[in-house]
């Protein structure tokens, strides 16, 4: 059986990145932890944002982590799917809005 490129067990080893660069790794994890604390946004809202971004970034570790985190915070399946659609809408919108650049270029190039 072929070995998958991603190993879900690696998520648990994320903290090990600090071993090869302690200062930067520690600063990153401190920052990361701070970002997800309750603030002007609730931790629940942040979890849903993270879930949407996890999908647009197509990060399998982040998808696993924030699916579980959302469930822990009582988020429903419907809310989770809507959050992903927000990410998908921005992603597709970001693609399509570049169509204007394409149109501008065509208009400039064509006689």
């Amino acid at each position: 059986m072929s070995k998958p490129y991603y190993d879900s067990g690696d998520l648990r080893k994320f903290g090990k990145i600090t071993e090869w660069s302690e200062e930067l790794g520690t600063k990153f994890f401190d920052y990361y932890g701070k970002v997800f604390e309750e603030g002007a946004l609730t931790a629940r809202e942040k979890s849903l944002i993270a879930l949407a971004v996890a999908h647009t970034e197509q990060c399998p570790y982040c998808i696993d982590a924030y699916t579980k985190d959302s469930l822990q915070r009582g988020v429903t399946k419907e809310q989770m799917m809507e959050a992903i659609h927000v990410g998908a809408a921005i992603k597709s919108g970001a693609t399509l809005v570049h169509g204007v650049q394409m149109m501008n270029k065509v208009d400039k190039l064509e006689m």
């Binding site: 609730t42 931790a43 629940r44 579980k68 469930l71 822990q72 915070r73 009582g74």
Partner: peptide, 17 residues
Amino acid sequence: NPSGAFLPGDQQALEND
């Protein structure tokens, strides 16, 4: 109590919800 293989979130936040 969670309806699956995950831990409960913050008790106060859940109570508010």
